[in-house]
Design a protein around this nucleic acid. Sequence first.
DNA 1: ACGCTTTGGC
DNA 2: GCCAAAGCGT
Lengths: 259, 259
Amino acid sequence: MLEGKFEQASLLKKVIESIKDSVKLCNFNCSAEQGITVQAIDDSRVLLIALKMDAGCFQEYRCDRDLVLGLDLESLGKILRQGNNDDYLTVIAEDTPDKLLVVFEDKKKDRISEFELKLMDIDSDVLSIDDMDNDCSITLPSAEFAKIARDMKTLSESLQILVTKDSVKFAAEGTIGNGSVILKPHTDMDEPDESIRIDLNQPVNLTFGAKYLNDIVKATALSPTVTIKLTDKAPALFEYRLPSGYLRYYLAPKFEDEE
Amino acid sequence: MLEGKFEQASLLKKVIESIKDSVKLCNFNCSAEQGITVQAIDDSRVLLIALKMDAGCFQEYRCDRDLVLGLDLESLGKILRQGNNDDYLTVIAEDTPDKLLVVFEDKKKDRISEFELKLMDIDSDVLSIDDMDNDCSITLPSAEFAKIARDMKTLSESLQILVTKDSVKFAAEGTIGNGSVILKPHTDMDEPDESIRIDLNQPVNLTFGAKYLNDIVKATALSPTVTIKLTDKAPALFEYRLPSGYLRYYLAPKFEDEE
DNA sequence: ACGCTTTGGC
DNA sequence: GCCAAAGCGT
C-alpha cells in the first residue's frame, strides 16, 4: 500500500492548484525510491509538466509496490480545499487501488476529515527528457517573474525573453503599445531569495506564448524563486523547487513565422 | 520635448484610476507654465472632469513646447498598473509625438520597465469654466463622502444634498426605503482632515445622479478631503486637491421633473 | 462593467 | 491579524 503523510496540507494543495488549470486528468506514479512523480502534457499539448515529490516532501512515506493513480485534478482540488493549510494530510491507496483516500488531521483539535476520491484509468505516454546543456540559466524571485508574465500578457499574446551576460529583458509588442522590463543581476545578501542571477554560455532570444507563461506562474506560491533555463530553438525549462523535489514546466518557444 | 518625472508612480496611477471609468479617451495638454491639464466630458456627457497637475507634482518637469497627448486611458491604466507604487515614473514625449514613453525605475533594484503607448487624435472642445461664486462650500473627509455616495446608491438612483448653515444632509428615497445622513460642521484639531466645514451664503437643495457621484468618489485615494461647492440650479463642483494642482468634477444637478 | 475572492502590504 | 488592491468570474 501507499501511505504518504504531509506535515502541511498546503504543500500538496499548492501543487495541485499549480497544475490543475493546465491538466484535467493525470497519473500520479508512486514508488518507494522515487516518491511521487507526475508527467503530464497540457490539454493543448504545448506545455509539459513534470512533478517530483521525493520522500523528503513527506513526514512519513511508505510505498510497498509501484502504483499508478489516475486522478481528476479538479476533483482532487475540491477535496484539498477542504483541509486547512497546516493540517496533517495523508494520502492512502491500496496496492490495487480503485480509490485514493485523503485524510486531514488538525494538529490541535480532535478533527479528522476523510475523503475518498475515485481513481480513473488514464492513458499517458511518459517521455524521457534529456537534461541537456542550456545556453543560459536565470534565477529570480518567483513573484517578480509572475508579475512580469501577468503584466506583459495585458499587452501581447507573446513574450520575448532576451538574455545577455548582464541583463535579462522581457519584452512584449501589442496593439496598444510596447513594453519591456529589464533586470540586471544582483546579489542580495540579506534576502538571498531576492537575488537575480544569470549564468550564460550564449545569449538567447526566445519568444513564448503569454498564455502558457501565465499557467506556469501559478506555481509561484511553491517557491520563492524560479529558475529559467533557455536554449536556442529548444523548449525552455521553468523550475520551482520543492522542499525535496521540483515542479518543472517545459515550454516550446514560438518560432518566427508564428509569432 | 516633454519629460515629467514623478517621485511616486502612485500619483499618476491614482489619477488615471480615478477618471478612466468615466472617460475612455482624452487629451492631456502639456505646457511649461501650466504643467499637465486635462478637460474631459464623460461618455454620457453629464460629468465634466478637469485635472491640473502643476510642475509641483513632479520631481522634475520640462516641457519645451506645448503638446497635446491623445491618450486611451484604459491602455495607459494597463501600463501604469505594471509599475510599483513607489517606483520613479517618467513620462516622455517628443515635440511632435506619436507615442508616449512611460518609464518606471525601481528605487533600489536594477530594474527598468519601459512602455511605449500609441497616441491618438482626439476631438475635444475645451470649455472655459467660470470660477463663479457659490451658494455654499462644504469640505469633508473624502472617505466619508465616498461611503455616503456608495451607501445611498443602494437605495436610490438619486442623491439629494441639502445644506443649511449648520448641517449638510444627504438623502435618498427608494423603493426599499428612505435614508439620510446628516453631518454637522466640526473642527478636529488633532486630525484636521477629519474636520467638516460648511461655508454658506445661501441654503441649497440639489439632487444628483447617484451613478455619477459613484464615479466621482473613485478619486478618494487622491486626497484625504473633498470640497463640494454648490449653487442652486448650477453644476456642482467636487474638488480633490493634489500635491500641486487638483482633480475637479463638475456635475449638473437633476431638475425636479426628471428626478 | 460590477461584484466577489484571493493575494499582498501595513 | 487586519485592511486594501488586484485578478477572476458572472
